[in-house]
Design a protein around this nucleic acid. Structure first.
Length: 823
RNA sequence: GCCCGGGUGGCGGAAUUGGUAGACGCAAGGGACUUAAAAUCCCUCGGUCGCAAGGCCGUGCCGGUUCGAUUCCGGCCCCGGGCACCA
């Protein structure tokens, strides 16, 4: 055994062994309890960063711990490999996205292996491989046939100079992130997944996932945004039509004195009268050229324009003007609002600006509002007035009554509205999964027949960064014949959002090599659901909601039997340095390669787990890493020195050990208990490591005395520490385990169990308070009763001084812990 | 504006069910070893008063409940995050 700990050789040795022997390869075994452990797979951006190190270190601790406990642990890794950075790199470096991505994957795989993570590499997948994305096309077609994938036109961010759609994230202060042109709203035909069909079930399950952090559930609930209200028809003054509105405040319908439509509302252009034509046109143009970010800013001025037309308030029968307003959103509700200026702040401001009439219909208890003197809208509950037969009703009650009345008289109906919108998946990008649809002039949109799948992404493509999607310019790809009528037809050139790939990869891992279907139901059945999922909080809504949606869709398509993909979710915090998130632009990144070279992977892992509990942000500190490194060096030295006089095979004889030995054993077994509980039920790795450090400090003192009769105790202590350290620092522990004379690998030894009898204290320290203030401690026998503790306390000189001859009014005794004397 | 987190030494953090506040680690100071440095080892380390024993104060602020509050309740301040003309 080397005298000094040198991580390089050791880590290399064990990594080679794990790789060669496929140590973490698993298969379905019904006789074993399965545990599916998953960390969010990375985008192959080039190299791993500290966020990955942290995420995967957390996962690896759980994986190795569960394996030691005898679970059949599925722990896969793969690559979320489609996406824009590859395309941008292709443009910049004159390379191909496929080449760039593959090189990155190869490099990053090497980095993950150097960290010693225990993955079943035989299950590795990359979403840009045909063997993956072709199945997604099949799922798409099955969704299309069920009406879960459909096409509709919608408004999107459009950069006129790049000729492409931009995601909301790519619009910076109203301008294109790449060329700085002003971004417009453009109406385009887009593919959607009908996630709204599952809105209720998705919402319902946010109450049934006890293993998820409450804040993630809250964020998803807010995102789905279910609200109960009414759809009410406001007949047009002229003609037969009506304007449909959605409202949650049907109790105020008698106060609706005008209407506001979104600029994109289909009626906006048909309702306009000749004399208002010019104003309305200008207004619509202005709204459409304003990007969403600016439109929704705090200080954005409410503006509108009169169409010249009128509608009839179905409650009052009065004629009310129809306006277009810039704050009404086409994609929420019906895109039209009944405006009640007295009880809605936006309508109030709008009415004041355009001099529209106000009618109070809700009076606060004990007050009388006068619309002439109102400074702001009154939005609280109250009692109805000016509301015909509903006058005098309390407003919450009136909500019900008016909804019933509207429904009965055919003026409207009760309805539920969601904030959640269908998921737009079309991207005018090359590096993604082609949407398997063909457009025929006669037959319309035709799904690519199964025998023609997959639609391969063509490789001979030029990347200029100009003129829209590169895919649309590949003639051989675009020009096809219709599968139904054989006429010339065009292929869809949009690709799917990369979030589609990450919505089902965790199921593909269960049968990654299956060639008959996306999933092998039997194998998926064994592994699903994921027992523990780990990843960043930034995915709280998008990815985690899409994945839940997809699981339900695949269930309904007959592929799986589970309702929810992830039983338990752990959202880890960010890695912070010098007060801000590590990022290239801030110049505060720490390169994992540098850490591995300088300290070894084990030290890097240990520190990232020790510095903070997983769900909190981790403050990176270079000197803190030194501390973790020091700990491993000290422990190495301790084992090295102990080995010189320790015999292998020495049996522990508990009757022969000294008092000191007993005390150390007690700490060993208490530590095993604490570390087990910290890892298993709390994921508090930082306190688990702290407890091991404490134990090592004691062992060090103990070993220094070198009493021959205590050697078996020392051996037990050292081995226990190694077993407990293994999930954190696997190479280090494997190496020393072998040095201590064990073959066959440390995992086989199993997770240590604590001996309850060894943890029992012989003496107890009971804290003594006088009037709730700490005044002393007494040592009593472990089996001492309340009387014994009282006697000891009152016999104590310090306590006597504190009591100062006064008569105790009350004495509170917390068994084995505390005695409080109240005087 | 609404909804979540969070606020503890010089720093990261601990205190799991209302019961010893500050575990463990970092930094700092002092010492040992060394020609010297690094490494390593030992001691001190919330504030304050005191020669000491010991006392008093202290978990963002104010108040409450309790024998006892970092922990529970009410009100406020600050920081971080999410959502947001959502009708």
């Amino acid at each position: 055994m080397e005298e000094k700990y040198s991580p390089k050789n050791i880590e290399n040795k064990w990594q080679t062994k794990w790789d060669k022997e496929k140590s973490f390869k698993v298969s379905e075994d019904p006789s074993l309890k399965k545990y599916y452990l998953l960390e969010m797979f990375p985008y192959p951006s080039g190299r791993i960063h500290m966020g990955h190190v942290r995420n995967y270190s957390i996962g690896d601790v759980i994986g190795r711990f569960k394996r030691m406990q005898g679970f059949n642990v599925l722990h896969p890794m793969g690559w979320d490999a489609f996406g824009m950075p590859a395309e941008n790199a292709a443009i910049q470096h004159k390379t191909h996205p496929a080449k760039w991505t593959k090189e990155n994957i190869d490099y990053m795989r090497g980095q993950l292996k150097r960290m010693g993570f225990s993955y079943d590499w035989d299950r590795e997948l990359a979403t840009c491989d045909v063997s993956y994305y072709k199945w997604e096309q099949r799922i798409f077609i099955e969704m299309y046939k069920k009406g879960l994938a459909y096409k509709k036109s919608s408004f999107v961010n459009w950069c006129p100079s790049c000729e492409t759609v931009l995601a909301n994230e790519q619009v910076e202060e109203g301008c294109c992130w790449r060329c700085d042109s002003v971004v417009e709203q453009k109406e385009l035909e887009q593919w959607f997944f009908k996630i709204t069909e599952y809105a209720d079930e998705l919402l319902e399950y946010t109450e049934k996932l006890p293993g998820w952090p409450e804040r993630v559930m809250v964020m998803q609930r807010n995102w789905i945004g279910k609200s109960y209200g009414c759809e009410i028809d406001f007949p047009l003054e002229k003609g037969n039509g009506a304007i449909k509105v959605f409202t949650t405040r049907q109790d105020t319908v008698f106060g609706a004195t005008f209407m506001s439509l979104a600029a994109e509302h289909p009626l906006a252009t048909t309702l306009v009268t000749d004399e208002n034509c010019k104003n309305v046109d200008e207004f619509i143009k202005k709204v459409k050229s304003t990007d969403k970010a600016r439109r929704t800013a705090d200080d954005f001025e409410k503006e509108g324009v009169f169409t010249g037309s009128y509608a009839i308030n179905p409650a009052t029968g009065l004629k009310i003007p129809v306006y277009l307003a810039n704050f009404v959103l086409m994609d929420y509700g019906t895109g039209a609002v009944m405006a009640v200026p007295t009880h809605d702040q936006r309508d109030f401001e709008f009415a004041k600006k355009y001099n529209l009439s106000l009618t109070v219909v809700i009076q606060p208890e004990g007050k009388a509002l006068d619309s002439a003197f109102m400074k702001e809208a009154y939005t609280e509950p109250g009692v109805l007035v000016n509301s015909g037969e509903f006058d005098g009703l309390e407003s919450t009650l009136a909500k019900e009554k008016i909804a019933d009345w509207l429904q009965k008289n055919g003026k409207g109906k009760k309805t539920i509205n969601y904030r959640l919108r269908d998921w737009g998946i079309s991207r005018q990008r090359y590096w993604g999964d082609p949407i398997p649809i063909i457009y025929c002039e006669k037959c319309g949109a035709v799904p690519v027949p199964e025998k023609d799948l997959p639609v391969l992404l063509p490789m001979d493509v030029e990347f200029t960064g100009e003129g829209g999607s590169p895919l649309a310019k590949v003639e051989s790809f675009v020009n096809v014949t219709c599968p139904l009528c054989n006429s010339p037809a065009r292929r869809e050139t949009d690709t799917m959002d990369t979030f589609v790939e990450s919505s089902w990869y965790f199921m593909r891992y269960c049968s990654p090599d299956y060639t008959d279907a996306p999933l092998d139901k039997k194998r998926v059945q064994y592994w699903m659901s994921v027992d523990q999922y780990i990843g960043g909080i930034e995915h709280a809504v998008m990815h985690l909601l899409y994945a839940r949606f997809f699981t339900k869709v695949l269930r309904d398509l007959g592929y799986v039997d589970v309702d929810e993909p992830f039983t338990n979710l752990l959202t880890q915090g960010m890695v912070i340095k010098d007060g801000s998130k590590m990022s290239k632009s801030k110049g505060n990144v720490v390169d994992p390669n540098f850490l591995i070279d300088k300290y070894g992977a084990d030290t890097a892992r240990l520190f990232s787990l020790f510095a903070a509990p997983p769900e909190k942000d981790l403050d990176w500190n270079d000197q803190g890493v030194e501390g973790s490194s020091r700990f491993l060096n000290r422990f190495w030295k301790l084992v090295y020195e102990s080995l010189r006089f320790m015999k292998t095979g020495e049996k522990l004889d508990t009757s022969a050990i000294t008092e000191e030995g007993k005390i150390l054993r007690r700490q060993v077994h208490k530590t095993i208990k604490k570390v087990t509980e910290d890892i298993d039920s709390r994921f508090h790795f930082n306190t688990a490591i702290a407890a091991i450090m404490e134990l090592m400090n004691s062992v060090q003192l103990f070993a220094a005395k070198n009493r021959p009769e205590n050697r078996a105790v020392l051996k037990e202590a050292l081995e226990s520490i190694l077993l407990m350290l293994y999930p954190f620092v696997p190479h280090f522990s494997e190496e020393l385990w072998e040095e201590l004379g064990h073959g066959g690998g440390i995992e086989k030894a199993g997770w240590p169990k604590w001996d309850s009898s060894a943890t029992v204290d012989e003496e107890l320290i009971v804290v003594v308070q006088v009037n709730g203030k700490l005044r002393g401690k007494v040592v009593v026998a472990a089996d001492a009763g309340e009387e014994d503790v009282k006697n000891a306390a009152f016999g104590d000189e310090k306590i006597q001084g504190a009591v100062d001859g006064k008569t105790p009014k009350k004495v509170i005794y917390v068994p084995g812990k505390l005695l409080n004397i109240v005087v």
